[in-house]
Amino acid sequence: MSIIDKNSKDPLHHQLYKIIRQKILDQEYKEGEIIPSELEMQKKYGISRITVRRTISDLEHDGLVRKIKGKGTIVEPFKSNRDLQIFQSFSGNALKKGERPGSVILENTKKEAPTKVVELLGIQPGDDIYYLKRLRLLNGRIIALNITFIRSDLGFDIEHNDFNEKTSLYDYLEKQGVKLGSANESMESRMPATDVKMDLFLEDNIPIFYKERVTFNTEGLPVEYSETSYIGNKYKYHIHLSKVREEDENV
């Protein structure tokens, strides 16, 4: 929808909100760019300035735009949303929400496992692991750096060309006969290390949302460990909480 239907039951400011939001999602209005002024939108869509102002206010409240005095209204960085209760891949989560996932493969090799990975995957010191380093993209925008360590004793070899910009790690493992069952995950906010900052093209003083995950197969064997550094202002998590019953609180 790119026009205002004045005969619709949908309020005018709701219609305009959906139009502007879609233009942002489609990158017609790109991150950091100034969107049309209130007067320009008033003339373009044939609506009152009060309606336009309410729409801009709603967009700003929802984190899609930000008003800068003396400059205009700019598009804020896009944030992907993830449900913490669901165990799924980056690509699977994005596709479920109608977004377009992608990757830039920075490194795909086999190397000796670091001490931390040895301990987390329960392998022997000196064992090799498959090392996969990728930039993760949503709708063409870089939002994270992902480093994955995959144990090498799962009964198959990972070739250099097995991964491209569209490959989902979990789909790949499932096709190799690895039945994924569960994962342990920890998250924290931190300042990025120098190499992470360079890979993500970050400016100084931009925090990241750092996540570690160990994924297990259905038999409880840890099959991969990953470290993901999300650009702090481009990602958010969704958590559904249930109230504890009073009888449980007293246990």
Rank of each mutant, 00 (worst) to 15 (best):
D127Y: 01
K111W: 00
N161V: 09
E119A: 09
P101W: 08
L39Q: 13
I206Q: 11
V214Y: 00
R100Y: 12
K175V: 02
S8K: 05
E33L: 03
S57L: 04
Y237F: 12
I158S: 09
L25P: 04
L135Y: 01
F163E: 07
I150C: 00
R66E: 15
R151G: 00
N139T: 05
D171S: 15
G126C: 14
T115P: 01
T228R: 00
R49Q: 10
I231M: 01
L200I: 00
N184S: 05
I147K: 09
L59A: 10
V251T: 15
Y210D: 03
V178W: 06
R136T: 02
T167I: 09
S186G: 07
S182T: 14
H240C: 04
K9Q: 11
K197D: 00
G177N: 06
L135A: 00
G98I: 09
V75A: 07
D58Y: 12
I143Y: 14
I19F: 02
T51M: 08
E185W: 02
K79P: 01
S8C: 02
G122W: 00
I74G: 03
K179D: 13
V65E: 06
R190M: 14
H61Q: 09
Y172F: 15
L169T: 14
I56C: 05
N217T: 03
G63L: 08
D248L: 15
H238E: 08
D171Y: 13
I56L: 15
I143N: 04
D127F: 00
D10K: 13
K166H: 11
P207L: 08
I105N: 06
E247G: 05
E227I: 02
K69E: 11
M187H: 12
Q176W: 04
M198H: 11
E28C: 01
G32I: 07
E76W: 05
T218S: 08
N233S: 10
F78W: 10
P125T: 13
H240P: 01
K166V: 12
E76S: 14
K133V: 09
N146H: 01
G220A: 06
I56Q: 09
S80N: 07
F201T: 02
L120G: 03
I68W: 13
Y172H: 13
I74Q: 12
R151T: 00
E247F: 13
K18N: 14
R21Q: 14
I74F: 10
N161C: 06
F201Q: 05
P77V: 08
R53K: 14
Q85H: 12
F201H: 10
V117T: 07
G126F: 10
I231V: 12
N205Y: 04
K97Q: 15
Q85R: 13
V117C: 01
P36I: 11
Y172R: 06
G63A: 04
K166W: 09
P222E: 01
M41I: 10
K179P: 03
L39I: 13
M198R: 14
K43N: 11
T167N: 07
D5P: 04
E112H: 09
P11T: 06
Y17V: 03
I158V: 14
D199S: 13
K116S: 11
H61D: 08
K211N: 06
Y170V: 05
S2F: 13
R213C: 02
L12H: 04
G102N: 08
E219K: 14
K97D: 15
D62S: 08
M198A: 15
P222S: 02
I35Q: 03
N233Q: 06
I123C: 03
K236R: 15
T167G: 07
T51C: 02
T167Y: 05
E224C: 03
F216T: 09
